[in-house]
Design a protein around this nucleic acid. Structure first.
Lengths: 132, 132
DNA sequence: GATAAAATCTCTAGCCGCTATAGGAGCAAG
DNA sequence: CTTGCTCCTATAGCGGCTAGAGATTTTATC
C-alpha cells in the first residue's frame, strides 16, 4: 500500500506540478508526507488519490475552500451528503451565471466586429462601441 | 470643457471605484490629472471618457494590456483599425473557448448532481465522481 | 471662527491559486 | 569523481484590484 513515490513521480501521475503539490501541502489540503533521510518527500497511494480528488475538483472550478469542505466530507463517509450536494449546486449556479454572462459578451463582441468596415480607427465601430 | 471634478464625483459618474481610478493612473492607463493646491486630483471630461472606455472594455473582459493597445489606437484615429479588429477577434475566440469549457463543466456538474441520492457520503455520487 | 465630519491623500499589504527564481543539497549513472 | 538530474527551502511575482492605516484637506454646522 505504501509505494513511496517521489514528488516528481506523483507530479507525473497526477498531472499536478511539483510546486503546486508543495503548495497544497502548505495550505493543508494534503498531509505532510514522511521524508527520506535526505529530506525528500515520500508519497503513498492515499495522498495520490487525495491529489487526484483535488485536481478533478479544480478542473470543475471548485475553489480551495470548497475542496477543503469536500475532502473533509470524504473523510467522514457516514455523514449525510447534503453538504456535498449544496456545494456542487452552488458551483453549478455560478457556472450558469458565468455562462449567461459570457454569451452576452460573445454577442456584443460579435456585433462590434460585424460592423467593423476595416477602415481607419476614426470610423472603427469596435473603438466606437467601447467609447460610446 | 474642463469641468474639474473630484475623484469621488468621477467614481460616481463612471462606476469605477476611487482606488481603482488611482490604480489605473498608477499603471498609466489614464494620465496623471492636475491637482488642487491641497493636492487633490482634478478631472476633466477627457479623462472621464477614457475611464468609461476602460470600464466598458473591462466589462467585455479585455485585459489591461489589450485596453492599453485599444486606447493607444483611439489616440491615433488615422491609423488602420485592423489591430483593433484583431484584438477584439482574439477576445471573441477566448470567450468562445471559455463558453465551451463552461458548458462542459455544467454538464458534468449536472450529471453528478442528478445521480446524488442524498444519502450518506459513503454512497454519494458527487464525492465519488470527484474521487474516481 | 471653531469644530466636527466627510473626502481625499499616500503607502503598504492582502486577495487567489498558483508560478518562477535563487541558491543549495542529494542521488544515480558513467 | 564528476556530471547532470531531481529535489529542497525561501521569497517574490502574476493580474486586477481591494482594504486598511494614518495624515491632510475640504465642507458643513454651530
Amino acid at each position: 500500500m505504501t509505494q513511496n513515490l517521489s514528488i516528481g513521480a506523483v507530479a507525473r501521475e497526477t498531472g499536478i506540478r511539483i510546486p503546486t503539490i508543495r503548495y497544497y501541502e502548505q495550505i493543508g489540503l494534503v498531509p505532510e508526507p514522511p521524508r527520506t533521510q535526505g529530506n525528500r518527500r515520500l508519497y503513498d497511494r492515499n495522498t495520490i488519490e487525495r491529489l487526484n480528488f483535488v485536481r478533478r475538483s479544480r478542473e470543475l472550478g471548485f475553489d480551495i475552500e470548497a475542496i477543503r469542505a469536500l475532502l473533509s466530507l470524504q473523510d467522514q463517509p457516514e455523514t449525510s451528503c447534503e453538504r456535498a450536494d449544496t456545494i456542487a449546486t452552488e458551483r453549478l449556479a455560478e457556472v450558469e451565471k458565468r455562462l449567461a454572462r459570457l454569451s452576452a459578451l460573445k454577442k456584443e463582441l460579435k456585433a462590434m466586429l460585424a460592423e467593423c468596415r476595416h477602415g481607419r480607427v476614426a470610423q472603427c465601430r469596435v473603438i466606437e462601441a467601447l467609447a460610446s
